[in-house]
Simulated assay, not measured.
Amino acid sequence: MGRSQSTFNNYSRHVAAISLYFGKIPTELDSEQVQDYLFYQQKKSKTPSQTYFKHCVYGLRFLLKSEGLPYEFLRLPSIKHDKKLPVVLSKEEVWAMLQCAKLLKHKILIGLLYGCGLRCMEVRSVRLQDLDFDRKQLKVVQGKGKKDRYVPLSEHLVRGLKKYIEAEKPQDYLFNGQPLPNGAGGDFDNRYSQRGVQWAVKQVAKAAGVKKEVHTHTLRHSYATHLLEDGMDIMTLKDLLGHQNIETTMEYLHIAQLESQRIFSPLDTLFAQCSQSLK
């Protein structure tokens, strides 16, 4: 189904919550009980996007699909998806982040997220055996959709990676992290935690003076947008990003400032034309 383990865990938590609330599994409830529960969760949710309510519905959909039942079985409501364009950094902002990263580990982390367009889970899962410095390639193993792919490594990133590996001497995963107490938010291995990656990106962005809301995926969005602006075709970009559907990749066409479709403000032509007429 193309969903991550964390997504399945999230769905399971919501199904468990409604089961505990009623003392029976949701498929044994009538649709009115489910409607009342969802209405209660919608009113209780304080976030603008009503995240908890949405995840309740997604969890119930997941349960019904697992049981081979239609969504109409519990009369589940439809969820409207917000059409939000992703935040994209300018090249100057990415450069500032690379310059302001004090730790070599963070500099390499930013370099991989932006220079290879990696997702958070993918950058955490990079192993030494996935790096091919001779061919200047990184093998992204079992990314989203359970498909491997190769992405090119910049010569600048290769030099930085060699320096980092020599200094840190990682044995398996490229990025090692400290395990969190009682496994809170961490993993059962010694990989850099998701929380650690997110914290590092936000701290570096803050140090660089970037005012935009920056997350790990912001660097991936910037990677895709900048490649389109630099002339890469959409099909090649789709493969580099590991997208299953071309429609997902085409969303970046709405953001990229392509030379063939250059968009400008009328103020530019106003100033240019009127200043000439006054001379």
Score class of each variant (00 low, 15 high):
Met1Tyr: 13
Gln5Cys: 04
Ser12His: 03
Val15His: 03
Phe22Thr: 06
Phe22Met: 06
Gln35Glu: 07
Leu38Thr: 00
Phe39Leu: 12
Pro48Asp: 04
Gln50Glu: 05
Tyr52Leu: 14
Lys54Ser: 12
Leu60Phe: 07
Arg61Val: 01
Gly68Asp: 13
Gly68Ser: 12
Pro70Trp: 10
Pro77Arg: 10
Lys84Gly: 13
Leu85His: 11
Glu93Lys: 01
Glu93Ala: 01
Glu93Asp: 01
Gln99Gly: 07
Gln99Ala: 05
Ala101Gln: 06
Lys107Trp: 01
Lys107Ile: 03
Arg119Val: 06
Cys120Arg: 15
Glu122Val: 09
Leu131Pro: 08
Asp132Thr: 11
Phe133Pro: 05
Asp134Met: 12
Lys139Thr: 08
Gly145Met: 05
Gly145Leu: 05
Lys147His: 15
Tyr150Ala: 02
Pro152Val: 08
Ser154Ile: 04
Arg159Thr: 04
Lys169Trp: 06
Asp172Ile: 14
Asp172Trp: 09
Leu174Ala: 01
Phe175Asp: 08
Asn176Glu: 13
Gln178Glu: 15
Gln178Phe: 04
Asn182His: 14
Gly186Cys: 11
Gly186Ser: 15
Asp189Arg: 06
Gln194Thr: 14
Arg195Gly: 08
Ala200Gln: 07
Val201Gly: 06
Val204Cys: 05
Ala205Gln: 07
Val210His: 00
Glu213Ile: 10
Val214Ser: 00
His215Trp: 06
Arg220Ala: 14
Leu228Met: 05
Glu229Ala: 11
Glu229Tyr: 10
Ile234Lys: 00
Thr236His: 12
Asp239Ile: 00
Gly242Leu: 01
Thr248Ala: 13
Ala256Asn: 11
Leu258Ser: 12
Leu258Phe: 12
Gln261Glu: 14
Ser265Asn: 15
Pro266Asp: 11
Leu267Ala: 14
Gln273Pro: 00
Gln273Ile: 11
Cys274Ile: 03
Gln276Val: 10
